[in-house]
Design a protein around this nucleic acid. Structure first.
Ligand code: MN
Ligand code: MN
Ligand code: ZN
Ligand code: ZN
Lengths: 146, 146
DNA sequence: TAAGAAAACGCAAAAGTGTTGCGTTTATTA
DNA sequence: TAATAAACGCAACACTTTTGCGTTTTCTTA
């Protein structure tokens, strides 16, 4: 799509077919993506090293950010492209991790409100991790409801 | 120490020398520990597999809990031994991760206050991650202060 | 639009973390 | 003290991620 090419240019990334497709996958994705999930979406036609390098580049340029994952995998979500750049990622939002499907969802500011009082440390960024059962898993597995 | 042996018994873990030492390391540690850091503290005299299995056991029995880590490593901190057990871990506290030294600190309840409004998900647990510069790193690297 | 430079790519190898199987040792229980 | 269970060391393995290098593609600019 035209928009995706324009974004890659703006963030200083060469417009290869793979990177255009990768960006559009992130735009379509409601939650977050692991390397393996991306590999699957390309029907294993792309080299995994290429995926790793693209993700690292996207992250450095401010397109995507890592999200917490219970299985210690690298997992990424699209940034707010207005507030992130090669210079700095600016994230003040929470993440929801589903016990059942392991997906990580970004939560927007309206979903959570945080009030923090002081400690001895200098806080530059924060991330609230909520754990539980996502809407999809909850509706299909009422056993977990209480 | 006597206290550590008593705790291991109470949580159903055999009192081997290594596990006694491991527990006391966790008691001494102000922040959190990776497998590698534990390996170093034993001067590489202990097999890494033994460390992995001890950590898994400690976690299952309710002695330690995993904490978030920027490098996707397994990292653990001591639990509040009054509120955690083999049956369930009960954590509602935040963690502070230092950009400079990578250490993860547990924050007690008085440090943070969280108010969360609803989303479509069912929340079972939460963990607030604060990022920035810890007191030690901050005092030695004033360049980061602003 | 045709070089030349820079970025991205594929393949192979390696590094790093964590797991599993199995025989042996150590601790607990009775 | 003998039987049982837990913990241990070693070797092998699985898996994710990184690095090196030569090739291909994209970008720049003249
Ligand atoms: Mn970002
Ligand atoms: Mn706990
Ligand atoms: Zn789910
Ligand atoms: Zn620090």
């Amino acid at each position: 799509m035209k928009k995706h090419k324009e974004i890659l240019s703006r963030f200083g990334i060469n417009k290869t077919q793979f990177r255009i497709d990768l960006l559009s996958i992130f735009f379509d994705c409601k939650s977050s993506l692991t390397t393996h999930e991306i590999f699957e979406r390309f029907n294993k036609k792309i080299n995994k090293v290429t995926i790793y390098r693209a993700l690292k580049s996207f992250e450095q340029k401010g397109l995507i950010h890592q999200v917490p994952d219970k299985n210690n995998l690298k997992k990424y979500s699209l940034c707010n492209l207005d507030s992130c750049s090669p210079d700095s990622h600016n994230h003040q939002h929470g993440h929801f991790i589903c016990y059942s499907c392991d997906q990580t969802f970004c939560l927007d500011d309206s979903t959570i409100k945080i009030i923090k009082t002081s400690s001895g440390h200098i806080v530059k960024n924060y991330n609230l991790i909520l754990e539980g059962y996502c809407t999809d898993c909850n509706s299909s597995q009422t056993i977990f409801q209480n």
